[in-house]
Simulated scan of single mutants.
Amino acid sequence: MNNRRIAVVTGASSGIGAATARRLAAEGFEVICAARRRDRIEALAAEIGGRALACDVTVDADVDRLAQQAGPQLAVLVNNAGGAFRQEPVAVADLTAWQAMFDVNVLGAARVTQALLPALIAAQGVIVFVTSTAADAPYEGGAGYNAAKAGERSLVGALRLELFDQPVRITEIAPGMVRTDEFALVRYDGDQAKADAVYAGVPEPLVADDIADAIAWMATRPSHVNIDRLTIRPRAQAAQHKVHRIGQ
């Protein structure tokens, strides 16, 4: 009989999500790897002894299937699915990109949380929301992403207050500058030069495994310990707007 605790990681096909799935598996969890790209999550699930489920967090039917897969008790939910799409001034911003960011970062996280909350409470589990330091302060061209991540943070705060008397922990990790294969590339519509410029000259930006390590630590604290919010940046990034770049 399989008695391993179950964890769900959304957006598990790459970057922070994939790294987190690996870390939680190493901690002994059976990880349900949920993402849209079936081929990637099937390979990941085979690697870590987990389960793959094709899931778009903006689609009700997909999230219903995720809840069915998770079952009646769920130890960990990592709401990692998200993303930044484009970086433009408000005056000329593509608002369809803003809508997409809100749909996945805010409504997607809310949809998954609603569906899995009964199982999390039953297991006295923990929810980890992956937000961003973009929720801390606005920056030029980032209004859509700033608003989406600030919205997700508000969701976290309200949920923590609403569930204060329930046996479930509500936690948030806010990463700063993390270099992954896809985040900046997606933001700039596949423009590799623009994506590379984000990290140009930055000595040792964070990588996905740095965030996954922190998430696994948050998820494995004793049940009475709630990590309300953990902000994590590379040493080179003193604040959202202040980054040390060598030779620049």
Rank of each mutant, 00 (worst) to 15 (best):
F164E: 14
S13E: 07
P222T: 11
G190T: 08
I215A: 05
I16P: 03
N79P: 08
L44A: 12
R187W: 00
I173G: 03
D196F: 06
C55D: 00
M177L: 15
Q68D: 15
E182S: 15
P203V: 04
A216H: 08
S13I: 09
A174L: 13
A61K: 09
V90T: 14
T10G: 08
P234F: 03
L95C: 08
A25R: 08
Q240D: 02
D191P: 08
R5V: 00
R221K: 13
G108L: 10
T131V: 13
L77V: 06
A239E: 11
Q114W: 06
A174N: 13
R153T: 13
Q240G: 01
L95Q: 10
R179A: 02
R169H: 05
V106A: 09
Y145N: 01
D56E: 13
I215N: 03
A93W: 00
L161N: 12
G201S: 03
V63T: 10
V198Y: 04
I211H: 07
D103E: 15
R229E: 13
A18S: 12
V225W: 01
A158L: 08
R5K: 15
V106L: 15
A109M: 07
V130K: 10
I227A: 14
E27G: 07
I41C: 09
S223V: 14
V8S: 11
L24S: 08
G141T: 09
D103R: 12
A123Y: 05
F164D: 11
A123K: 05
L159N: 02
V202W: 01
R65I: 00
R245W: 07
A174T: 07
Q69V: 14
D210C: 01
V178P: 01
R111N: 12
R221C: 07
Y199D: 06
D189N: 15
V63C: 11
V31E: 12
V57A: 10
M218L: 14
V198M: 06
I16K: 04
A239L: 02
K242I: 13
T220W: 09
L206E: 01
D189G: 05
L159D: 02
P118N: 11
A184T: 08
R160W: 10
D64L: 10
D39I: 02
I215M: 06
Q248G: 15
D191C: 09
A147V: 03
T220P: 12
L24T: 08
A212C: 11
L95S: 05
D209N: 12
R86E: 11
G71F: 10
A219G: 06
T171M: 13
D210R: 00
A184K: 04
A150T: 13
R235D: 04
V106D: 08
I227T: 07
P167H: 10
V207D: 11
F29S: 06
N3A: 12
A219K: 06
G125Q: 05
A200F: 04
V243C: 02
A34D: 06
A135D: 03
L77Q: 04
V202H: 01
A137M: 05
T58G: 12
A115W: 02
P72L: 09
V202P: 02
S14G: 02
T113S: 15
G151V: 04
L116G: 06
L155G: 09
V207W: 02
Y188G: 04
